[in-house]
Design a protein around this nucleic acid. Structure first.
Length: 426
DNA sequence: TCTGGGGTCCTAGGACCC
DNA sequence: TCTGGGGTCCTAGGACCC
């Protein structure tokens, strides 16, 4: 059996933990640049604000309905996530942190299979403990496979009578649930495949479960076949409780106002390259190549987009190497008289730092010096904030950075923003 | 005026090899 | 002149996830 734990309306719940006046209020959290809605409380969902709604289209409607609006506060959400996951780890050593607000976990064999506690009670215990430790409400779905645990979780969240925990185990019960389960809600079946399957008259998870293997393989590829087997209770997706190393690292942003000056774009790309290099060092990896993309976005009248990959002469995680390659890649693509809405830097060909192969003419002494320098820079920036020290190419103008409108304080990661602490010292 | 940011996996097709 | 068959590697694009 496998459990899926999912935090309810995670970002909205995080905002509520530190501001109890928000309980039962309508809350939405906006994306970077306050562009669109990325999280909603149940009340805001009920009002009919869709996920991804453009803020400018819904602003008046939300204000008229008293919706509390927040710019996203990822330092807070990341830290709250960390607390939730640490609490869950107390319940089982076999846990896979799947996303910022989700984890798969193998229920403790000693407790559950020994019959000391039912799976329902086990789930309830997780729920009450996480809430007590963090203030975050969660839902728990337990079933024989990951895909069915996802189904169970959805039921736990939707049907209030289950009190946030739902166990799906018996074949006839599984079929009953799947018969009323929309294929679009199955983990792994997205918009496109739903449309395709609908065209064949397949609408429910049970219908899909009963299709033949060759048909599934032909129409949905091997990935789809795995999903279907999982619906049949045959595990095809392992619990990945040993974290795998990243295969790519990306930093990208949309700009509130389109950038036309090359120098602004260069600053942005250098900044993204620098942040990516930092992430690379944090994970103790190096990259073989740097990919840069720029685009005017679909909404532009005059559309242009390009991407370019530069190989590094030697795999590296040194900011200057990454930045200079990124700028070179940008040079090859940049075209005048376009307004660029988005850019990004992706590092690929990642490899463990200690496996670095020196090329024939590589200067190992210089390499060691750079490594020490990078380490010192990281330490300073860790202590004094990102970009306390930075490479000149990253720049200071930052015309492309926009201040978020309504940020909540970083309650858990920054003393200065803690309202209680402030009150005490005043 | 204003539309997120990060990832993964799979497949088809081209280039190249013997 | 005729023009096989099997394999690998790489990349772009499509699909999905949160």
């Amino acid at each position: 059996m496998i459990a899926l734990i999912d935090c309810n309306n995670f970002y909205a719940s995080c905002e509520r933990v530190f501001n109890p006046a928000l309980v039962n209020k309508l809350i939405v959290v906006l994306s970077n640049n306050d562009g669109c809605v990325i999280a909603r409380s149940n009340e805001a969902k009920a009002l009919g604000i869709p996920m991804g709604a453009a803020y400018f289209e819904y602003e008046a409607f939300m204000k008229a309905n008293g919706v509390e609006i927040f710019s996203c506060n990822f330092p807070l959400y990341g830290d709250m996530s960390w607390r939730v996951m640490r609490t869950l780890e107390q319940f089982s050593p076999n846990i896979e942190i799947y996303s910022i607000d989700e984890a798969f976990l193998q229920p403790s064999v000693a407790l559950c299979e020994g019959g000391l506690i039912t799976l329902e009670n086990y789930g309830e215990k997780m729920r009450s403990t996480v809430f007590r430790h963090t203030g975050i409400p969660i839902s728990v779905g337990i079933a024989p496979t990951k895909t069915l645990a996802k189904v169970a979780n959805k039921i736990a969240k939707k049907d209030k009578e289950h009190n946030g925990v739902f166990v799906l185990q018996k074949e006839n019960e599984i079929n009953k649930i799947l018969n009323n389960f929309d294929i679009n809600d199955i983990w792994g079946i997205g918009r496109r495949l739903t449309k395709k399957l609908n065209a064949y008259g397949i609408y429910t998870a049970l219908q899909l479960k009963n299709m033949s293997d060759p048909w599934i393989k032909k129409n949905l590829s091997i990935t789809g076949l795995r999903t279907v087997w999982e619906l049949r209770g045959i595990p095809c997706l392992e619990l990945e409780d040993i974290p795998t190393t990243s295969k790519s690292i990306m930093t990208s942003r949309s700009f509130k106002h389109p950038l036309t000056e090359k120098s602004d774009l260069q600053e942005a790309v250098a900044t993204f390259a620098s942040i990516s290099a930092e992430k690379l060092r944090e994970e103790k990896l190096t990259a073989f190549a740097v990919n840069v993309f720029i685009t005017t976005g679909h909404f532009a009248k005059k559309h242009y987009g390009a991407s370019n990959t530069m190989s590094l002469s030697m795999s590296s995680n040194y900011s200057a190497d990454i930045i200079s390659s990124a700028l070179l890649a940008l040079d090859k693509m940049y075209k005048k008289s376009y307004g660029y809405k988005q850019a990004g830097v992706m590092l690929v060909g990642l490899q463990a730092e200690e496996k670095t192969q020196f090329t024939l003419f590589a200067d190992q002494k210089k390499h060691e010096k750079q490594k020490k320098l990078a380490h010192s820079i990281d330490l300073v920036n860790d202590r004094w904030g990102r970009e306390a020290i930075f490479f000149a190419a990253v720049g200071k103008n930052k015309k492309w950075v926009t201040k978020p409108l309504r940020h909540s304080p970083r309650y858990t990661t920054n003393w200065k923003e803690l309202p209680v602490a402030k009150a005490n010292y005043m």
